[in-house]
Nucleic acid binder design. Structure first.
Lengths: 341, 341
DNA sequence: TTGTATGCGTTATCAC
DNA sequence: GTGATAACGCATACAA
């Protein structure tokens, strides 16, 4: 006879044999203990322990035509901003029956598309993806996916399904308005890893400066290189060398802002009097820095938590209150932009 | 007849029908296109596209008795150190046929045990876990797992299977030796989130100080609170208030060290003359800081990459050169400990 | 190169 | 409350 060897590990049938019951009873005892009598349940649990039985999740997923997988795709693992949303997602799903499957798109849309395809192959219970800038194909795949989909870290009128985040345009605008209000005259923008969200921040920033009559395209400095503290320090030095009259800078994130602080200090510039600095996201270090750094505070943890709540609500059959949730942001004014006017 | 409804999505049989071939041909065309004639392959690919067919990975895993899942468990998602190893792991596995399944144990051994159990339920192709401080049960589960297991971020004589990292004891010792050599007299230790690895750093540090005749248990300050830049700034202030004679401090990680720098600057202390500071891990910001911060450089990315290589080697049937790999560390001396003697 | 029959380990369905 | 049986969707073994 044809025979196939399994993985060799004990199966539910082995447990059933040892406990002297049928497989389905074991299945029930493990999934919903209340459905099985105390007597049998005890015997089954013993057998499970003795055999060191671990249920095979793939077989379960196949038989029940549903998996407990939540697919999550972010563009970066080392960027603290996404890490905090991820932490919220893992915290919320961690204890329950769900498994989080994480993908790293590295800011490459085609990579994201590949990941979406792979994840959908697992018939996930839900999907969470960062941003609104998916390729058309990615979008269509997700629209056809028979599971809730949440986009995070951004807002927009036209979500794939649901969305929770904040407006990067408005955030950038708030930064610009603040610098203008503080009386800075030659206000620059320093942006690394210019992803679509950073561009929206820049657009908002431009609008604020144009409105304030301070817009100078020569004071926009961007690069696609990954942002880092070191890069911030380097670029601000170049920036100041090229335009010694620069007197304030909006960095597209906090790493760049901290780097700008260090770079200015090295150059002997005084913050906030010679030059004002504002970052974006308000990582915890911003308040601790010396001088403390102004930033746009966003609540990444809340975004992750909210995304999970929306998913759980849909999975439990409810209709979520809102499909579009704007959690906003908050300007945190600190020493780095508080100069004596 | 008894009938069960599947998920309703197209199956490999639907594709086979549409293409006018058998299911196994479709299966082959998708897994190894070279096994199928051009003619049929084209028809099959067309059918796949038209039906928007996505293979069901659970069914595949069940039928082939092997999954393409790599289980990874780390204690933190927001700690940059683990994030960088993770990035290496995702980079290495990302393109291939493997899927990384990530778990966050939050520094809780029982949580880690639960995650190991869950992951083993997926019959992973391999497991990667952080550190050597698993519970006995976790260790046994992993020893019985029929897949390669790599412990990362640490070294030790007795790995579960394979291990790649560096010695935290030796790293701490190197930091202590350096401070003694620089002529600092009252050398303290500032440690937050004292996990087992941090304790080993502290032990190495103690040994160096004892050897140098500078050990003072009153200068060891630790807390179990999560480390952060803000916390570093707060604690160094308390530390200096209690022991104004403190003239150097080894922080158990770089966030704490950066915080210590800011805290000292706020207190008007000059670095490195009034007080020397050394961190651990050498995150990129350490070199950019002003003054630049001395640290113990570790290569987290290489650790992750190495772990993947060991796994791939085993999975392809080879025997890895070594089961224990010590990637070491390197003292990076910078301004924060380079005082005029 | 292609197809047929069967098994992977679990759960849904129906019967007792 | 418990059990027998047939799916779940795909890949292996073997044959042609």
């Amino acid at each position: 006879m044809r025979k196939r060897k399994g993985a060799g590990r004990p199966t539910i049938a082995d447990v059933a044999n040892k406990a002297g019951v049928s497989t389905i009873t074991v299945s029930r005892a493990l999934r919903d203990p209340a459905m099985v009598s105390d007597h049998l349940r005890r015997k089954i649990n013993n057998a499970v322990r003795k055999l060191n039985y671990v249920p095979h999740s793939h077989a379960s997923a196949l038989a029940s035509t549903r998996s407990n997988i939540i697919g999550v795709i972010v563009p970066s693992l080392t960027n603290n901003v996404f890490a905090e949303s991820l932490r919220a997602i893992y915290d919320a799903f961690g204890q329950g029956a769900f498994q989080v499957q994480l993908g790293n798109s590295r800011y490459v849309p085609a990579e994201e598309e590949r990941l979406v395809r792979t994840f959908l192959g697992q018939r996930p219970s839900a999907m969470i993806v960062a941003g609104t800038d998916q390729t058309d194909v990615t979008r269509q795949l997700l629209e056809n996916a028979e599971c809730p989909v949440v986009q995070i870290m951004d807002v927009g009128d036209d979500p794939i399904d649901m969305i929770v985040g904040f407006s990067h345009f408005e955030g950038g605008k708030a930064a610009g308005v603040h610098l203008v209000q503080q009386g800075y005259k030659r206000i620059g923008f320093l942006g690394a890893r210019m992803d679509p969200r950073s561009y929206r921040r820049l657009e908002g920033f431009k609008e604020a400066l144009q409105f304030g009559g301070r817009y100078d395209p020569d004071l926009i400095m961007t690069t696609t290189v990954s942002s880092s503290v070191s890069l911030g320090a380097e670029l601000i030095a170049q920036f100041c060398a090229r335009r010694p009259d620069l007197d304030a800078v909006f960095c597209n994130n906090d790493d760049m802002a901290l780097g700008a602080l260090f770079g200015c200090q090295k150059a002997g510039l005084s913050i906030p009097d010679d030059i004002g600095i504002i970052g974006f996201n308000d990582l915890e270090m911003m308040a601790a820095a010396h001088p403390s750094l102004t930033s746009i505070r966003t609540d990444r943890y809340a975004i992750g938590r909210h995304a999970v709540e929306m998913i759980q609500s849909v999975l439990s059959g409810e209709t979520p209150d809102k499909k579009i949730v704007d959690l906003g942001f908050e300007l945190q004014v600190r020493q780095s932009t508080s100069r004596a006017k």
